[in-house]
Nucleic acid binder design. Sequence first.
DNA 1: GTCTATATCTAGATAGAC
DNA 2: GTCTATCTAGATATAGAC
Lengths: 224, 224
Amino acid sequence: MIVPAMTTDDSPRSDKVDQILQGALQEFLSRGYAGTSMDRVAATAGVSKPTVYHHFQDKEGLFCALVQHIAQVRFYGTLTPCPCAGPPVTTLRQLLEHMLESIAADDEYQDFVRLVIGESGRFPALARLFIIHITKPGIERVQSYLADHPELGLPDPVATAHILVGTVVYVTLTQHILHGQDLIALPQKRLVNALMALLLAKATPASEMSPDLEEVITGADDTL
Amino acid sequence: MIVPAMTTDDSPRSDKVDQILQGALQEFLSRGYAGTSMDRVAATAGVSKPTVYHHFQDKEGLFCALVQHIAQVRFYGTLTPCPCAGPPVTTLRQLLEHMLESIAADDEYQDFVRLVIGESGRFPALARLFIIHITKPGIERVQSYLADHPELGLPDPVATAHILVGTVVYVTLTQHILHGQDLIALPQKRLVNALMALLLAKATPASEMSPDLEEVITGADDTL
DNA sequence: GTCTATATCTAGATAGAC
DNA sequence: GTCTATCTAGATATAGAC
């Protein structure tokens, strides 16, 4: 018996199936759909090629099953954590910072985004799975939080959630996925400060803003 | 002599080279890098395969030359038009709407984005070319406009430009590139309204806002 | 269910004629 | 410079033994 190369221990459907999905994950994430060969998938999974074809109809079937599985299990809700309790101003800042940092630190998620976007023209159904299981839950969690805190004075929590999440995703895309970190200099704190300033400008006019609140908005230190 | 793969070349090209680039564009945009065969490139270009290899070192060289050419010539500055004259509030609204609409209408640009992001893990240098020639000029044009209009009262035009462009790109990504238009409903006007409201909240406190300006901010009609 | 071995095709890249 | 014809490696998928 061959020991699986990379076991992250999931649901015990079938040992071989999980092995194959693990191998397919590695290969498809690093080489793309067309660049991946079933030979390499089988080798990386530690099984033979006919075993792969016994469990999955063909290359396309394996790819679709993999993306669906990953979107639902591995990366479900990756985009946003559960907002913790506390004053909205602090919570929102932490939320944005956590989103930026967790995506920036997750190379596998970045590869998954590359794969899904890259194949979205040829596999539109998979792109829509990504929207359903990852993008949409993230946006909805933010917009629920915004809607639950009317003291923020936001006229449109739904659109505002798109602006917040959109800005975070865009910056991650350019800085990390497209390797533009040194080409477009924009420190995380400066971006979050700007977002918070826009969000809170209406809720708290400058004339009513206390020094304490001002500090919370602009951040603890000003190393821009 | 073989044409260098990565040069800034403005000299007139031979007919065949343009034919090959045109064929390569069609094939690579619709099939991706690994999914494209040199046979099909040659056939689509209307030349023979050895002719392709005479002008380009290999498949990778052709691909890099193509992306560089497209980023510099075909899509340079696609992201944002030149801001026209007029009051900043109106101009900004038109700018955002024009960005959203022009990207949404340009299928070839969407395919190019899919290609560059999809290959950004294996061709990081091409992703950086995309940043340099397309992303960065767009952001800089917006931030210059914002900085040139201090009456908007924006504390950080650079970060604000990222928020505006980022929101537009993110919405385009989810709605069109990832085919999520019917999954995430967010009418363009509603998004632009929310962006304008955030931008102008600080510049014009509600107490000083005239009915006319209010209408400009929230849009002419309210078909949300 | 899983393997060894293989059929069939298409890929990238090139010789050599003109 | 451009073509026809071809080489070789690697691709998807399967037959058939265990």
